[in-house]
Simulated assay, not measured.
Amino acid sequence: MTKVKYYYDSETLSYRRIEPKKGKKVVNISLFVLAAFLFGGICLLILLNTNLVNTPKELSQARELKNYEFQFELLENKMTQMEEVLANIEDRDNNIYRLYFEASPIPKEQRTAGFGGVNRYRNLEGFNNSDLIIDATEKLEKLQKRLVIQSKSLDEITSLAKEKEKLLAAIPAIQPVSNEDLTRMASGYGWRSDPFTKVRKMHYGMDFTAPRGTPVYATGDGVVTRADNRSSGYGEHIRIDHGFGYMSLYGHLSKYKVRPGQKVKRGDLIGLVGSTGRSQAPHCHYEVWKDGNRINPINFYYGSLSADEYEALLHAASQENQSLD
């Protein structure tokens, strides 16, 4: 019930009822509503700026943020796995591939170096998860750099492998006369008795005795540089430039099967055994040159002989007998 208020009237010496004014009542109601509205608005603003109450949009953004954090964690794990795989490849590259092809290893400091200088990640700063984003970005860029270095290294290894393949094909690695056509290995590299003067002198090649007309084969890939008799003592002879500092010579031939400038492969027929020039009997005098120096051909027959055959040839070549030229 509404309280009834009275006042004392001194003129009538009695209490009279106070009649409320209609305008004041409206003002009071209006002030109450305004105060309630202001109070509610202030409370709402406070709640909206705390974690107690979130709007649907904020809840959606929070879920997206959690999902992004989860995705970044997955990315971090994948990059860690990639680093381990790449480190294994780099280790094999340095200690197997580059070692085999005689290339200098790439220092670890060069492979894993960061990016110095200015702050590359300034545009990623100022966010709630800036540290996470910057760390992932930096790790990814370092991985990219290491992959580029490794890719260039493999390109270099590929180039070296091609050169190695050419080298292995070029090195004189077989006998110039096949075993089935060979009568005997008459004389080896070293000091031998000259067949004409009987004086001991250095014999710079190996003499393969075989019947006149026996095929003589190129012992490695190369280019024929000479096929003539204009070199003293060798008679009709052939010289093949194999590249990489190697040259082979085939002397005392009876016939040529190649011409100067012609490219040959290991095992190609290049001439026939004879006894031209300073020769005592039909044979092929064979020499191997490296960087302008004559070296022992016995070290270059790994491409055509078994272990037993090589041992027998080595024994025959070591005998200090009389050479045939």
Score class of each variant (00 low, 15 high):
Val148Arg: 05
Val148Gly: 05
Val148Thr: 11
Val148Tyr: 09
Ile149Cys: 04
Ile149Gln: 05
Ile149Tyr: 09
Ile149Ser: 05
Ile149Asp: 02
Gln150Asn: 14
Gln150Met: 07
Gln150Gly: 05
Gln150Leu: 12
Gln150Ile: 11
Ser151His: 13
Ser151Arg: 10
Ser151Cys: 04
Lys152Cys: 05
Lys152Leu: 10
Lys152Phe: 12
Lys152Ile: 11
Ser153Cys: 01
Ser153Trp: 07
Ser153Arg: 04
Ser153Gln: 05
Ser153Ala: 12
Ser153Val: 10
Leu154Trp: 08
Leu154Pro: 02
Leu154Gly: 05
Leu154Arg: 09
Asp155His: 11
Asp155Glu: 15
Asp155Thr: 07
Glu156Asn: 15
Glu156Lys: 15
Glu156Gln: 15
Glu156Phe: 08
Ile157His: 03
Thr158Phe: 11
Thr158Asp: 14
Ser159Ala: 14
Ser159Tyr: 08
Ser159Gln: 11
Leu160Arg: 08
Leu160Tyr: 07
Leu160Phe: 07
Leu160Met: 03
Ala161Asp: 14
Ala161Ser: 06
Ala161Tyr: 08
Ala161Arg: 02
Lys162Trp: 00
Lys162Tyr: 07
Lys162Met: 09
Lys162Thr: 02
Glu163Met: 11
Glu163Lys: 12
Glu163Pro: 04
Lys164Pro: 01
Lys164Cys: 08
Lys164Arg: 11
Lys164Tyr: 04
Glu165Pro: 01
Glu165Phe: 13
Lys166Asn: 12
Lys166Gly: 02
Lys166Tyr: 00
Lys166Asp: 01
Leu167Met: 02
Leu167Pro: 09
Leu167Lys: 13
Leu167Gly: 01
Leu168His: 04
Leu168Lys: 12
Leu168Ile: 14
Leu168Gly: 02
Leu168Glu: 13
Leu168Pro: 00
Leu168Phe: 03
Leu168Arg: 11
Ala169Gln: 09
Ala170Trp: 03
Ala170Arg: 01
Ala170Gln: 03
Ala170Leu: 01
Ile171Ser: 08
Ile171Met: 06
Ile171Ala: 06
Ile171Asn: 01
Ile171Gln: 03
Pro172Tyr: 02
Pro172Lys: 03
Pro172His: 06
Ala173Phe: 04
Ala173Cys: 07
Ala173Met: 05
Ala173Gln: 11
Ala173Val: 12
Ala173Trp: 06
Ile174Leu: 04
Ile174Tyr: 07
Ile174Thr: 10
Ile174Gly: 00
Ile174Met: 06
Ile174Asn: 02
Ile174Ser: 07
Gln175Ile: 12
Pro176Phe: 00
Pro176His: 06
Pro176Met: 00
Val177Leu: 02
Val177Gly: 00
Val177His: 06
Ser178Cys: 11
Ser178Glu: 13
Asn179Leu: 14
Asn179Pro: 02
Asn179Cys: 09
Asn179Gln: 15
Glu180Thr: 12
Glu180Leu: 15
Glu180Tyr: 14
Glu180Cys: 10
Glu180His: 14
Asp181Gly: 15
Asp181Arg: 14
Asp181Cys: 12
Asp181Thr: 09
Asp181Leu: 03
Asp181Ile: 00
Asp181Asn: 15
Asp181Ala: 14
Asp181Ser: 15
Leu182Ser: 03
Leu182Asp: 09
Leu182Trp: 01
Leu182Arg: 03
Leu182His: 06
Thr183Trp: 15
Arg184Ile: 15
Arg184Pro: 01
Arg184Leu: 13
Arg184Gly: 12
Met185Ala: 13
Met185Lys: 07
Met185Ser: 06
Met185Cys: 15
